[in-house]
């Protein structure tokens, strides 16, 4: 009995040691605390690409440094839950969509949107030019490819436009454009800047895109989101304010010089991603449609208007997410930055 007990203790010790050793092997040292710029972590929503080029410019041109910030830009990916990364405190600020924020909040997170990178919902229905889907009614009788995470989006889109679900054949797809190229589907739920570009590259033809945002499903996208407690802490709030100031400047540069944003992305920040410069340029150009709006002309990039908030809440409610109201937006930081460009 005691023998077994002793053996067990030894075993536990050995396992503990092994675990400690393996963790020590993999952990990287993070304890270079002390004076220096304030550290801040930004969780982006996908692998490095021109979609985040504003942040790359802010980093490269020293805009973060000017604000006394040391920003780590974390890559996202297909299996990253950005909202959760922020909610769990692993990043200070994250990029996601307004409806995702509402979902996270409905599940117990307390996230607040402080800026809107994309003024429009970038989701679109992409179709082939010889069989175009120009308006919602065109979807009737068609086969539409939908990625795993976006089923609810298409359902709501159909509902808002009075189309019976049974009139559309939903085909589950992944995140590539192949099913449309091969003719397996007639339309594809796509990201406005991504799949249309890939489609053109693959077929040599320009696909037809219908933004779901133009037909009732409009939310802010690529929003900057923080935990509410971050805003309640004056120091943390100040860091976020300085960050957004630098970030806004970076994105301003993107709007002014798309080619530079593409070069910096392809040659530096995403240089190991094997991205095609032409496809990135096409994406960056399309992206301008999302970055700018009448609101941003007047108040500067990232702007969140009262109308916009109303539109967002209406869409979010239509998506069947409960509990969303205007408190999930905080425009005070943007207002304080309204003069800067």
């Amino acid at each position: 009995m005691t023998n077994t007990a002793r053996a067990m203790t030894r075993v536990a010790g050995v396992i503990g040691l092994a675990l400690a050793a393996s963790l020590a092997l993999t952990a990287c040292s993070t304890d270079d605390a002390g004076e220096g710029p304030d550290k801040l972590t930004l969780q982006t929503s996908w692998l490095p690409s021109v979609q985040f080029s504003g942040s790359y410019i802010a980093d490269d041109a020293g805009y973060y440094e000017d604000e006394d910030l040391d920003v780590s830009i974390l890559p996202g990916g297909p299996d990253v839950a950005n909202d959760a990364v922020v909610a769990a405190g692993n990043a200070d600020i994250g990029l996601t969509n307004a409806d995702n924020v509402a979902r996270a909040n409905a599940e117990g997170a307390d996230l607040v949107i402080v800026a809107a990178g994309f003024q429009k919902q970038p989701f679109a229905i992409l179709s082939a030019p010889d069989d175009p889907l120009n308006k919602p009614k065109d979807l009737i009788g068609k086969r539409i490819g939908v990625p795993s995470a976006d089923t609810a989006l298409l359902d709501t889109f159909l509902e808002l436009n009075d189309i019976d679900k049974s009139d559309v054949t939903v085909v589950p797809v992944g995140f590539d454009v192949a099913p449309l190229v091969s003719g397996e589907v007639d339309g594809l739920v796509a990201f406005y800047t991504e799949q249309p570009t890939a489609y053109t590259a693959a077929t040599g033809e320009k696909g037809v895109t219908m933004l779901v945002g133009d037909y009732g499903l409009d939310v802010y996208a690529q929003v900057y989101v923080v935990r509410r407690e971050t805003l309640d802490d004056p120091d943390a709030r100040d860091r976020i304010t300085r960050f957004l100031k630098a970030e806004k400047k970076g994105w301003g540069d993107v709007v002014d010089d798309v080619q530079h944003a593409v070069d910096l992305t392809v040659e530096t920040y995403a240089k190991d991603g094997g991205l095609s410069a032409e496809q990135q340029l096409a994406q960056a150009t399309l992206q301008l449609d999302l970055l700018t709006s009448p609101d941003t002309e007047k108040h500067g990039l990232f702007w969140i208007s009262d109308d916009g908030i109303k539109r967002n809440i209406a869409t979010i409610t239509a998506l069947g997410i409960s509990g969303a109201d205007a408190s999930m937006f905080d425009t005070s930081i943007l207002e304080s930055l309204a003069d800067t460009k």
Binding site: L47, P78, D176, A178, A198, A201, A202, G274, S276
Partner: peptide
């Protein structure tokens, strides 16, 4: 590289 390759077909 795999994900980017898939995205860009």
């Amino acid at each position: 590289l795999l994900i980017n390759g898939l995205m860009g077909l």
